[in-house]
Write a protein that binds this DNA or RNA. Structure first.
Lengths: 181, 181
DNA sequence: GTCTATATAATGATAGAC
DNA sequence: GTCTATCATTATATAGAC
């Protein structure tokens, strides 16, 4: 799906890739609609795990950014949202869960923004959520299409901004020091 | 394409919508690959017109933002880029032209950023291009899926930011004044 | 240029043997 | 659960009449 787009995901193709008959796909998932729904649910489950991991880490903003920009999650989300335009059942479920997850991320970010003194310049915390989601999505999706103009600079700016808010612990001359936890 | 996704765009459907036989689509466009290529070219042509219009206006940043967020262009671009994952011929053309247009937009923005004193805070002008493209894309695409959480606040922040850089000419008590040009 | 007719391939899905 | 067989539908595309 991430490599060739949702249109390449067919029961026959999935069966071949899994080394089984395509009919087994229907045995387990009934319809393709349902298969894509299950895929979306698996994706959101993983997103929630990554989200909660980020907010118990010592650098929540950096972890959140690195998770979003590294994982194939942004790519998969983009593809499933494109597919949702074509499949009504996906559309409702996606709209619902995106808003739900965004609410959680927002309330988690609210505390961070207060702590970092960002509330004055950025305003409401949902803005930061939209900003992070939007920027990671365009960087990841364009990257996969072979578009890279401006990417390195944009990432550098954002990472500099994060570094200022969440300075990395500097290691001594004896090499990197692992913090006790 | 914008309403139901690229998978809904078939020669049969196009023929029906145009009130002609689907075979005529092949008469004019030969293959579907070529049809999508022509669509992409029409899209980029219009993008270039809007871009040049923005930069001769008195509020280039505002015009650029409003063009991007209003037109169905962002939606079409997103759909065609999703389709490009599935169609190799599109992929190369899209990667090439996106970078080309981005180069033009960047060099146009470079002058604006200097004038507005943004270079110090934002850095290189391509960053602003990526920022505008990314934010308009997520706002437009999510909007069409029925996702709106955080959108109003994000738009408000960006528009406030533009208003500060490009203050609107305040009209007198006699009503709006049209500037002579 | 627009139509009818048709070739060919791929899709989602079901029924039933084992 | 996994297979074979099969169906109805849809897709792109071409050939040829008018």
């Amino acid at each position: 799906m991430c490599e060739e787009g949702y249109a390449a995901v067919t029961s026959r193709r999935l069966g071949a890739e899994a080394g089984v008959n395509p009919q087994l796909i229907h045995y387990y998932f009934q319809s393709m609609d349902n298969l894509f729904l299950e895929l979306w649910r698996r994706h959101t489950d993983r997103s929630l795990v990554l989200l909660s991991q980020a907010f118990i880490s010592q650098s929540p903003l950096r972890t959140l950014w690195e998770n979003s920009i590294t994982a194939r999650g942004a790519s998969l989300a983009a593809e499933l949202m494109a597919l949702a335009r074509h499949r009504k059942v996906l559309r409702a479920e996606i709209a619902r869960t995106v808003e739900s997850i965004r609410r959680m991320q927002t309330s988690a970010l609210a505390g961070i923004m207060d702590e970092y003194g960002l509330t004055k310049s950025l305003g409401r915390p949902e803005i930061l959520t939209v900003l992070i989601t939007g920027m990671t999505r365009i960087l990841v999706v364009e990257d996969e299409l072979g578009i890279s103009l401006g990417h390195a600079d944009t990432r550098a700016l954002i990472e500099t901004w994060i570094d200022r808010l969440e300075p990395k612990a500097r290691s001594g001359s004896g090499g990197p020091e692992k913090p006790k936890d």
